[in-house]
């Protein structure tokens, strides 16, 4: 298929808009001091916290998101439309709004939080709050991408399995999942990338303390005030991890079809 020639103009605009700022960041990054900067204690604390919390939140996303996508894809009826909207909204919500939503629900004086507080559970200012915030914003990415994949993946094999007497659970685990593995992997990668970049909800809901709640994006935000070089060095790391993950996700999606 040939590309109409005019399409190259908006293409150029898009490319310039997206790529030039990233190039600008890379040009300005303190490459020679990078190893020294990235091995500083606060850089390692932020990196470690970000990776650890993202692994946990991505696992949570996988465990609760996969069955959710299955239910949504296989259900009919008006309620599925509502639930689908509900599940998608956090994806487009401004991060600060997500943080406020979590705060007014799970905060110490929140709808649920005040009851949890009575029995001594307060998650504000803990790493658990970071994981909750990341899970909240990342979950829709897996659910939405996986639901589409489940719908388009033909149900023939599953019907055959069911016909041969396999239970729905067994069909799900031994037939549906292997077929969907690439889609699950790419959705997981996207969710991880989203969790890694989580900023607003964490800042509003979890706070910012080195090694406890100050993830990579929060550390960059703070360092911007005083240590531009370290902020840029961490930004390069975040960019690199994000690029690898998105690239991986695209490759997996490609393998899937």
């Amino acid at each position: 298929m040939s590309i109409p020639r005019w399409a190259w103009v908006p293409f150029g605009v898009a490319l310039a808009l997206l790529a030039v700022p990233i190039l600008g960041l890379l040009v300005r990054a303190p490459w020679t001091r990078l190893p020294e900067l990235l091995t500083s204690e606060r850089a390692l604390d932020a990196l470690g916290l970000s990776l650890a919390s993202c692994v946990v939140s991505t696992l949570l996303v996988l465990i609760i998101g996969t069955p959710t996508a299955l239910v949504l894809a296989r259900s009919t009826g008006r309620w599925t439309g509502w639930v689908r909207t509900l599940v998608t909204v956090p994806m487009v919500l401004p991060p600060v709004v997500a943080g406020l939503a979590l705060l007014t629900t799970l905060g110490r004086r929140g709808l649920l939080g005040q009851h949890l507080s009575v029995v001594g559970i307060e998650i504000g200012f803990t790493t658990a709050a970071v994981v909750v915030a990341q899970t909240f914003v990342a979950l829709p990415f897996l659910v939405v991408s996986l639901e589409g994949a489940i719908r388009t993946a033909g149900g023939d094999y599953e019907r055959a399995a069911a016909h041969l007497g396999a239970s729905p659970t067994r069909t799900f685990l031994t037939v549906t999942m292997p077929v969907l593995a690439p889609a699950v992997a790419s959705g997981t990668a996207l969710a991880f990338a989203r969790a890694l970049g989580e900023f607003g909800a964490t800042l509003t809901f979890a706070g910012s303390l080195q090694g406890v709640t100050r993830t990579l994006p929060l550390e960059i935000y703070l360092l911007r005030e005083t240590d531009t070089d370290l902020a840029l060095a961490l930004a390069v790391v975040l960019l690199a991890v994000a690029a690898v993950i998105v690239g991986l996700s695209q490759r997996l999606r490609g393998a899937h079809g």
């Binding site: 190259w8 103009v9 908006p10 150029g12 490319l15 310039a16 808009l17």
Partner: peptide
């Protein structure tokens, strides 16, 4: 050339 023209637009 078209690419550059596109970039110049913004």
């Amino acid at each position: 050339a078209l690419l550059v023209a596109g970039a110049a637009l913004i």
